[in-house]
């Protein structure tokens, strides 16, 4: 049985469906990312899994406990970081974590041990006695993760954990999330595709409240990215372009001269032909300076999936009217 299971989840605000018919399952130890544009329904799914928003239809369970009917049990199994960490500005880091630990059923005898553990895991030693209101955004986010981890939950739910972080903090947060692999099952949301691909084993793409695709990066690319653009930078190589055009699967090529006698060739092809293209370059005697896919393959998949739906702009406006990050 899967650790997390969602069956036909729906949430309606009046006639408006924030999410509709969303089903998925997550195995123990996985790091799974919910990817979608702002207002796609990611936070709604996480709130339902966090058991503080009731679904309008369907059900979800964690370790077999229904988020609707066994809320208290579910809440003891999860650690939750909302998009804004729930911090009391007048408290200091350690007293705050002690408070959260007690609130989350950590036995009195283990509170200090658990607080010390999460402080060490989240690198909060230097600010352990600083008032929460005085912390930078990055540290606040880390305290948010620490409060979610303090009772050593089975499942960690992180809503936009890298939102607003600077590049260094993003790398630190990514490392922190990756360090949880195996010990916790993590489900996180983001609209930043590169981060999802770097941290998650599996991706669920949400669009307009519906699950439109799921799988790991390779699965999604194989399934949805039929065309690929490969960029080459070469020097020399007689008849290389003609040779590339003769490859089965190559749809078109474009050649642009660049500096120092080098040539840039853009190849549109069906499927991943990078290996075959490399062989052709070597066979032609050209010097190969660069061979790469144009952009991120998953990005193209994502854009394709979310752009297929009509009325995107209207939907965005509708979300704002409802008044929240859905």
């Amino acid at each position: 049985m899967s650790l997390i299971s969602a069956q036909h989840l729906s949430k309606f605000y009046g006639d408006y469906a924030a999410i509709e018919g969303v089903s998925f399952s997550i195995e123990e130890g996985e790091i799974v990312g919910l990817l979608g544009l702002n207002g796609a329904g990611k936070s709604t799914i996480l709130k339902i899994l966090g058991s503080f928003l009731l679904p309008s239809g369907g059900d979800a369970s964690i370790s077999g406990f229904s988020v609707e009917h066994d809320a208290e049990k579910v809440r003891s199994l999860i650690g939750y970081l909302p998009d804004t960490p729930p911090l009391y500005d007048e408290m200091r880091v350690i007293p705050y974590l002690r408070y959260v630990a007690k609130l989350k059923n950590v036995p009195d005898a283990r509170v200090e041990e658990r607080v010390a553990d999460v402080i060490q895991k989240t690198n909060l030693e230097d600010v352990a006695w600083v008032q929460l209101g005085e912390l930078s955004h990055g540290f606040r986010q880390r305290v948010g993760i620490a409060q979610a981890l303090v009772h050593d939950p089975k499942v960690l739910i992180l809503d936009e954990p890298i939102n607003g972080l600077d590049p260094v903090q993003i790398v630190e947060m990514r490392d922190l999330i990756l360090s949880l692999r195996g010990r916790h099952t993590v489900i996180l949301s983001s609209h930043i595709l590169s981060e999802i691909t770097k941290t998650c084993d599996r991706i669920l793409i949400i669009d307009q409240g519906k699950l439109v695709a799921e799988g790991n990066e390779a699965d999604l690319e194989n399934k949805f990215a039929k065309n690929m653009r490969v960029n080459l930078e070469v020097k020399g190589g007689q008849g290389l372009e003609a040779s590339l055009k003769s490859l089965a699967g190559v749809k078109s090529t474009k050649t642009h001269p660049v500096q120092n006698g080098m040539t840039r060739i853009e190849i549109e092809c069906e499927g991943d032909l990078r290996s075959e293209i490399a062989s052709k370059v070597i066979a032609s005697g050209a010097s190969l300076y660069e061979l790469g896919r144009d952009g991120d393959g998953l990005e193209a998949v994502f854009m394709k999936l979310v752009k297929t739906s009509e009325g995107k702009a209207q939907r965005g406006a509708g979300n704002k009217e409802i008044g929240g990050d859905l």
Partner: peptide
Amino acid sequence: GTIVLFYTSP
């Protein structure tokens, strides 16, 4: 937004 702490705690 601290009420979320209660809503996600047992």
